[in-house]
Write a protein that binds this DNA or RNA. Structure first.
Lengths: 328, 328
DNA sequence: CTGAAAGCGCTAACAT
DNA sequence: ATGTTAGCGCTTTCAG
């Protein structure tokens, strides 16, 4: 059931079958009909691998994610997959399981199997990224940028978001804040820290301390004691997941939110609005991100040109119940 | 930078390069070294498409899911992807966006690009599934079974789980129960209904009514009034997501859980234990599912034999705060 | 408008 | 032990 069978059944050459299957209109109508009849009779569908080899393209793009259990990457994957599907492209996944040394290898492999790669590599060093990027073209970066090679980047402005959250706490009267940090080597954690530097420059009278945290529910949960002891009244947590963990830990210790402590998350995950109390957070338009990632990829595939600016996504602050006026 | 370049640089034939790249030990050590030197000099990596065409395999498996935003399928995808990666296989995604007519087409396409397909098609009719299954071999089914063709199936015993949840409510003294249903055509909803039939047979004195619901947060939320009005004191909800929606809606209406109403979910999603109150639910070992799906797939790929039994996964009941004794 | 033939990059049987 | 050759399934020049 290859092209040859259809050809012999229709009494024509492979070439003609190929032409018909690809909608080449220079084929005689009668012959085309005969070919189509044979094809549907044999339920023939062109072999994509053969096609890929001949055409030099696979109609597939790869996405490298550090961790598929992270809702952010799930949402990007979903947006990307749906957008790509609309244009007849498929998505191949590579989960690096948070092992940054694997990211480069996986990305390279994915690139060889696919027509392009979307890379989410928050832990990779800048140097490695600069070296890797040119070998991956067409490439779309998520939450990273490159200096040497121009590469379309989609970056969420975490610094801006956390500044706004901090300013919100100040507005509520909080003067002692703490940031429960994310993973040390996380690029987006660094961006938040930079944003907080600007914040302290702008509000020199506000005290801001840093508590080591993480990006997991458990990390947040286990920071409860440190947070409770630190004396701050407004807590900026790395992300929603950790914030929920903290929320849970605080609740177990009888510390009320927002009466005793105000708390902010980051990401606006689906369930952030349904925690108790609902989480004040910064909404990241992640499904748009996946969608736009595909558009940037398509541009490169179509025009063969990587010259595309970095897109910054300003988070939208969602004021909910986990923040309130400082205790008198 | 294909195999030919390496061959000419090393002064040997393509065939020898191929042998070296594939670890064929019959190659002279010196020549092998020369080839490897040339390969690394040119940063040569075999083209997977060419390889696939020659070998008739792609080292890729496809997974068809109805909706990537559903935590269940995310977890299966993740488990599958990680397990497959351990054996050097990659995963190609096809999201049917809950359009059941797309499922068959996507599955067929995926199969042509991949060495096998894992199919999650809860909405597809039995007839369509029976027809499709033989064309997809090697195939692993999730939460579906076939009659005509033997196909490895992994099915969560939803009927068993919901029976146990209902029995738990009875034990707490509830005599008026309601089931907030899932999507009509969902196979797993049908299984729950069957389980509930057995339940009513076993507990004829317990009243059980059915309220149309859905599988989304909003569906649960919007059912709040119907649930509040139905007179039941124990509510079995299709899944955790809908249960959280209902929880939220009830809370807005001032109905307390579990004091006024007991509530159960299904799936034990990551955040089920962190709702307010924490959700009593049936835990489905979904990441094991992804893992096992890969093992079943690998068996078929290796032995070329589909004869594998259906695996039933009994859910584990998680008793939490959303269920309590019936109001006196 | 159609067929013959080359070629995409690789593997493997065959021959030396 | 290595090179030559065929072939995986398809597209696409090139002749006719």
């Amino acid at each position: 059931m290859g092209i040859a069978d259809v050809a012999s059944m229709a009494g024509v050459s492979h070439a003609t079958v190929s032409r018909v299957m690809n909608g080449n209109t220079t084929v005689d109508a009668d012959i085309a009909a005969r070919v189509r009849a044979a094809a549907s009779e044999l339920k023939y569908k062109p072999n994509p691998v053969g096609r890929s080899l001949a055409l030099g393209k696979t109609d597939t793009i790869g996405i490298v994610v550090p961790d598929l259990s992270n809702p952010t990457f799930q949402a990007i994957l979903r947006g990307l997959s749906i957008a790509a599907a609309r244009d007849g492209y498929r998505v191949l996944i590579a989960d690096s399981s948070e092992v940054s040394s694997e990211e480069a290898i996986l990305a390279g492999e994915a690139r060889r199997r696919c027509d392009g790669v979307v890379l989410c590599a928050p832990r990779m060093s800048d140097a490695d990224l600069e070296e890797l990027a040119p070998t991956l073209y067409p490439l779309v970066l998520i939450n990273r940028t490159t200096e040497s090679v121009p590469t379309p980047s989609l970056v969420v402005d975490y610094g801006q978001g956390i500044q706004e959250l901090a300013a919100h706490l100040v507005e509520l009267g909080h003067r002692k804040l703490a940031y429960l940090t994310g993973p040390d080597r996380s690029a987006s954690n660094v961006q938040r820290l930079r944003g907080l530097e600007k914040f302290t420059a702008e509000f020199p009278d506000v005290e801001l301390q840093f508590i080591p945290g993480g990006n997991t529910f458990d990390a947040g949960f286990e920071s409860s004691d440190a947070v409770a002891a630190c004396g701050a009244t407004g807590i900026l947590v790395f992300n929603d997941v950790a914030a929920m963990g903290l929320l849970s830990g605080l609740s177990e210790r009888g510390i009320r939110v927002p009466e005793d402590l105000s708390l902010t998350g980051f990401d606006d995950m689906p369930f952030a609005r349904y925690t108790m109390p609902p989480l004040t957070t910064a909404a990241v338009p992640i499904s748009d991100l996946g969608d736009l990632a595909w558009r940037r990829m398509r541009e490169q595939i179509q025009t063969n040109d990587a010259a595309s600016p970095t897109n910054y996504f300003p988070p939208r602050i969602e004021l909910r119940g986990s923040t309130g006026p400082v205790k008198a």
